[in-house]
Amino acid sequence: MGLEDKIPDGIILTTLEKMVNWSRKSSMWPFGFGLACCAIEMMSTFMAHFDLARFGMEVMRPSPRQADLMIVSGRVSNKMAPVVKRLYEQMPNPKWVISMGACASTGGVFNNYAILQGVDRIIPVDMYIPGCPPRPQQLIDGIVKLHEKVKHEKLKQPVEKGKKK
């Protein structure tokens, strides 16, 4: 994204980096699309009882252009896989992916002709959450851990090591 490209080599960013990461972490906008059973638990997480707004994430974007976090909630079928990949590519950088549940992470109990055995085969995943489906608390835990990861990201990442850029 814009900022990193404009900084010339040899300049180290410290406080700015912290601030940018802090703001990215604190107002993450998830992409509101659900796939299967986990989507219902994801919705529960956003609703009254668990209230994800406590973590600055109450707003779900219906368009990938405005989102920076994709929660792959549920099994990805071979028919859906190209769509998921396209949606991921449409999201602007920086972007993160949470693979929610056993099916999205590994194919789960559905080891057959129709289901993609893990969404990490088509898009890079930052956080895997186990469970079938994971409880909302687990999802919140995963999101908090992702926040922790975002906090320590480097603005200027070496191209060969980092997946982004």
Binding site: T106, G107, N111, N112, Y113, A114, Q117
Partner: peptide
């Protein structure tokens, strides 16, 4: 046609 009995389930070894 996947539901034919002679179509394999295509199980993938984890």
């Amino acid at each position: 046609h996947p539901l034919r009995r002679d179509y394999s389930l295509t199980y993938e070894i984890p």
